[in-house]
Design a protein around this nucleic acid. Structure first.
Lengths: 200, 200, 200, 200
DNA sequence: AATGAATGAGTCTTCATTCAT
DNA sequence: AATGAATGAAGACTCATTCAT
């Protein structure tokens, strides 16, 4: 197999992800995936034990990629404030560049997540943990004034997720420029957490 | 029908909403709704043309109630800054008090929304339009420094939605206090948009 | 509905029973049953919750009919010896006259029976319990000389079942007359349990 | 291949037999057999043309072993009455010691047996034929009083099979001692066929 | 001697919906 | 206002088998 040819396993993952993104979890069907690829439904079972496993793999891979992107981005910065912004921007960057992969992470309802292996949740918190540690440093350095870095980290993440969701789910007014919306939102979110330095 | 007895139509809506909230769209089935209520599946069709109509009604009603709650809350305040906060708090308040109704508004993917009658979208923007007009006034009054009130309104809404989603979808770390998380998030969001008055 | 027309429920039971008899449990499929009757597979689910319930109903009905046949037959006789033989003959009679119903009782492996509601097993032992009580009386009256009437009852039942199985499963040599085989077998089985009176 | 290592062919047969015994014919699947052994499903086809051939081999081997056991047991006895009992006991002995092999012989319904090569049926009758010849001698010697030795042989076999089935299919009341049940049943069956000698 | 990839036909079951009553 | 009967389409998944290697 050369570089162009995707393995069937890869094709299944890509197609599933796309279905999940465009049609939602309810419309994700083994049959449809197979049909889209042009292969028998049975073939999917050669690569994934069942539908749950397939979706779990999808989630796991997305979480891993997102975490890595965030870590790499933060590693390139030195100052705390730079790291702080880098994490936030890497998060948004990933969501916009790999929308389908990003959305997969949130596709499952918590009720359905009961079947998702618990130990994999920890992995999912890597990026968030990094953000928390940076916030802690930021507090020490007097960049932020916060009681609870953990809550702050979650709050930032939640706000970002809200902004991204609105865009990805096409709930944004068509007259609004997507990039401008994102840029301004990031700035406001960041500003909401930084101590404003007022040069007297 | 007396006060205690809910009409069948109401029961159907309530049950559907609950299913939607707890099990997701995929698990919303006419049969299950009927069974839960203790009525034949056919009976639902006496009140709703089909599943789409049922869900659309659900959305429409939720949107209406949310809009009204926001409007009423804003009307009670006089100053712009108070109105601004009132809208934000009314939004969050509604989401937390009537979680099932709130969530219904976002249950449908835009792809599925293609079947949702366009004219009803406008209604859905009433609350948001109010927020935008208040922001405009805020800018005039020098409370905020913003180029695009429309984007700002969308951004606030998006951030709030993110915070609420994290809570409702149970994605918050169990060690974090729910109310504290919400309160702090609101404060940060609001702070992110206000001009900080620095007493020199 | 007049006497000729069987209800769909009845048709399903009859057809299932027939499939079970001719093709075995492995070949019993909802689709095939439906197709045979000329109805959609879905329709079966209007009368039976699932395949298990259908088969359980089949078993239950057969067990009930067999028990009743045995009880009625025994009730018509007065002397213990007559009751003893009546039970045995009623059992065989039922098996030969309603072969399909008889076989249903034994169609499920004990491993599969784990899903069969326990309380229904008790019903299944009515006929056997009757036999046991008659044997007890027979011992008292000196007709039989047996230590354990319970074991004897089970043994008779087992032997009869063996004889019947061989016939119903067509394992009998085609040259052997079916009725003669059954008649002689019954006689031997009965003889095996009676005290032989030897007029000196 | 040394003494410990079973050939793959042997493993397949053993595993199939076990599945047949514990889960029934419906649950016998090439995939499951392969998985259990830890080999690819395709590998089975190197040794057996298809599922039918596999099951037929299973039956054939069981029949052969049972026949041999009976023959050997009978050969060790001299008197007719001893041979008679030896055959019966060897049959039961085999069934209890090699339950899985015994049950295989009866696993297929006659309807499914249509695919079973006719000439192999004859082999299956070796043990039975032996019993018939012993019965004939028994009649000549005045041990039994029977019109039709062929029917008698079939009847004994059928009764024994009934008794064994009840035990192997776990249809015996748990309070009943298995061995006692078998022993008493054998005695009754034998008694049912012997002329009772009454010492005046 | 053994396997991985693949599939068409089949398994049970659920779904939204219709129709006659 | 409400229902029981019915169905075609679709759901996830399993099966025996083939073929190329």
């Amino acid at each position: 197999m050369n570089g162009e040819e995707l393995s069937l396993r890869e094709k299944i993952l890509d197609t599933s992800r796309h279905f999940l993104f465009t049609k939602g979890y309810s419309s994700l069907s083994m049959r449809k995936i197979a049909k889209e690829i042009g292969v028998s439904a049975t073939s999917i079972y050669l690569y994934f034990e069942n539908k749950d496993h397939l979706v779990h793999t999808l989630i796991e891979e997305s979480v891993e990629e997102l975490s890595r992107a965030i870590e790499q981005s933060a590693a390139q910065k030195i100052s705390t404030i730079d790291k702080f912004e880098a994490i936030i921007r890497a998060y948004v960057e990933f969501a916009m560049s790999y929308s389908e992969k990003y959305q997969v992470i949130y596709v499952m309802l918590s009720s359905e997540m009961s079947r998702y292996p618990k130990e994999k949740f920890r992995k999912a918190r890597r990026g968030y943990a990094l953000l928390e540690s940076v916030i802690k440093k930021g507090i020490e350095e007097g960049l932020m004034e916060l009681d609870e870095p953990q809550i702050a980290a979650y709050s930032i993440w939640a706000q970002l997720h809200g902004v991204i969701s609105v865009v990805l789910n096409q709930r944004l007014d068509s007259k609004i420029d997507r990039n401008k919306f994102i840029e301004e939102s990031i700035e406001h979110i960041v500003q909401g957490f930084l101590v404003r330095i007022t040069t007297a």
